[in-house]
Amino acid sequence: MSIFLQAKAEGCSRQNKHQGRGFLGLLFIFSIGYLFTLESSINLYLFRQFNGIAPYFPDWSLTLLTDLGNGVTLGLITLCFVIKRPELIIRVLIASVLSLIIVPTLKQYFDAPRPAALLEVINIVGETRLNNSFPSGHTATAFLFAGTLFFAYQCRNIKTLAIGFAAIVGLSRIIVGAHWPLDIIMGAFVGLFCAYFAAYFPYTKLSKFHNAIMVSFLWLVLLVCELEKSFDKQLIWQVMALRWGLLATAASLIWYQYDIKDLVSQRVKNKFMAVNKT
């Protein structure tokens, strides 16, 4: 038995080392990119190259793609994963709260101008914003999600797909004219850092009832946020359809995953029996 436990511990240690090397590799790549984009001419050149892609795609497709980094949209996608992996709830909450503190703080501190504020010739898709460019919040959210999956799964394909997804979301922010490449790289740093910090917290094992309560509460929070944003006239119907489709999907997963009807009935029955005993 002790030999088995030792072998298991050694296996976990090797997995953690492998993940650590992969994470350090990502940081190294982004560090190189960050150093290059500190040079304003390179930053501008890369922006021109990616932003020049915009006319080749319909505006709605780019808007839909970049919205995958929106807090509500990606929050719902993350919630769908968390419903299947409830032990990740605390990690996701910690990483999200940390990101919500770091990103606005950096944006307000640097108050960097966006491309639309400095360039006369630019392709803009969606809302035109002029300040608080550094770092990219959408990219931070995307890499927070990707980082969470990176540390939660051992499958290399899942890790690659998650990082690739986040990278595409980040690049879309340049294509739609919302951010500089430097903003994207720092956003990736922030998202990965938040996921890395949260990964130090152990998996949380709660009862089925308490897991159902937590995911239902998170779903309600995202619903309220979406109801508030639904009155934004700049949102196109494709984005609205995506968000409400994700809301419906998450609600269905919660209902069937936790058998809400039976769970509530059993809870009420237990309370009733407890009252009768007293």
Rank of each mutant, 00 (worst) to 15 (best):
Asn70His: 09
Lys271Cys: 10
Asn132Arg: 15
Gly52His: 06
Ala250Arg: 09
Cys80His: 04
Asn157Pro: 02
Gly33Val: 08
Gln6Lys: 09
Ala140His: 07
Leu222Lys: 02
Ala117Cys: 10
Leu98Met: 14
Ser207Ala: 10
Ile3Gln: 12
Val169His: 00
Pro181His: 05
Leu161Arg: 08
Ala198Asp: 04
Asp259Glu: 12
Leu227Gly: 08
Asn270Cys: 07
Leu88Lys: 02
Ala9Met: 10
Gly177Glu: 03
Lys205Phe: 10
Cys194Glu: 05
Gly126Trp: 03
Tyr203Ala: 08
Ile260Pro: 09
Leu246Asn: 02
Lys84Leu: 15
Ile184Tyr: 04
Pro104His: 03
Val125Glu: 01
Leu253Ser: 10
Thr73Gly: 09
Arg173Lys: 08
Ser252Lys: 12
Asn132Gly: 07
Gly137Leu: 06
Ala162Phe: 00
Trp237Asn: 07
Val190Cys: 11
Phe151Gly: 04
Thr63Trp: 00
Asn51Lys: 12
Pro135Val: 08
Pro104Asp: 07
Lys271Trp: 15
Leu65Ile: 14
Leu182Asp: 09
Leu79Arg: 05
Val239Ile: 15
Met186Lys: 04
Leu144Phe: 02
Leu130Ile: 15
Ala251His: 07
Gly69Asp: 01
Arg85Val: 11
Thr37Asn: 14
Ser216Pro: 02
Asn270His: 13
Tyr109Asp: 00
Phe134Asp: 01
Ile185Asn: 07
Ile236Glu: 14
Gly25His: 04
Phe193Leu: 15
Pro113Leu: 15
Asp183Gln: 12
Ala112Glu: 11
Leu149Gly: 04
Leu227Gln: 13
